[in-house]
Amino acid sequence: MFQTLAYYATVFHRGFTAYTTQRLQALGLSFGSLFPVIYVGKHPGCTQAQLTADLGLDWGYSQRTVTKLVEEGFLTREKSGRAYHLDLSPKGQEAFQVSHQVFFDWDQQALAALDEQEREQLFALLAKATKKEANSTCMRP
């Protein structure tokens, strides 16, 4: 097979997307809703502008996603002054818990062949590579 980071990143992305989609479908969520739900769960009361900027989303995509999440009962949107503030509904809280946990569950499955020391080494190397890339692009933590 290929010995490139791009190849392995693609393999992992496909696996993570498939795993996450399966877990989220039980809640009625799509993969595209994953990060907005997690963001609002970690930043209650945020504005849509904050969510859009921090996740690096296109404004139109953000608008459609937030509107859909509000209509489906995952988010609440309250106007305060000139901005709308977003929060999780009770249904959104459940989605947040599952969405947040899916990362840990998938890691455990995907990295089952590695021992603890190998996992730590892998994460240290990935953090080092990511830091270099983060310094040369507009990536947000």
Rank of each mutant, 00 (worst) to 15 (best):
I38L: 09
R140C: 07
P36I: 06
V40A: 06
P44Q: 05
Q108V: 09
K42G: 06
A112Q: 11
F96V: 03
V11E: 08
R14W: 00
A134W: 04
F2H: 03
K68W: 00
L24D: 01
I38D: 05
A129K: 10
G81Q: 12
Q93I: 06
Y39C: 10
G73P: 04
R64V: 15
A9M: 07
D107P: 12
A113H: 15
P141F: 08
R14N: 11
L111V: 05
S99M: 03
V37I: 10
K132S: 13
Q101M: 00
T17L: 09
R64K: 15
S99C: 07
K79Y: 02
E71L: 12
G92H: 00
L69E: 05
L5F: 06
S33Q: 13
H43Q: 12
A9N: 13
L69C: 06
L69Q: 07
G92P: 01
E118V: 05
S80R: 15
K42A: 08
L88Y: 01
A9F: 05
L86C: 13
V37T: 06
H100Y: 01
L24I: 02
F2N: 02
F123A: 14
L51D: 03
A18V: 15
Q97Y: 00
G28I: 01
T130I: 03
L114N: 15
G56C: 09
R14E: 05
L5V: 11
Q50D: 13
V66M: 01
T17S: 11
L88A: 01
T130H: 05
Q63M: 04
Q108C: 08
M139N: 08
H43K: 13
A6T: 14
T76K: 14
H13A: 15
S33W: 02
L5T: 07
S62P: 04
Q22V: 01
T52Y: 00
E120S: 09
L69Y: 00
R23V: 10
A95Q: 03
A113S: 15
V98F: 01
E116R: 08
E71F: 00
E116V: 12
T20D: 07
F123S: 14
T67S: 14
T65I: 09
Q97F: 00
G41A: 08
L24T: 07
Q117N: 07
L34A: 02
H43S: 08
G32K: 10
K42C: 08
V40N: 04
R77H: 12
Q22Y: 02
Y39T: 06
A95T: 02
L24F: 05
L29G: 02
A9E: 13
A18M: 12
E78N: 09
D115M: 10
P36L: 06
L27C: 04
F35R: 01
F16M: 04
Q25G: 13
E94L: 05
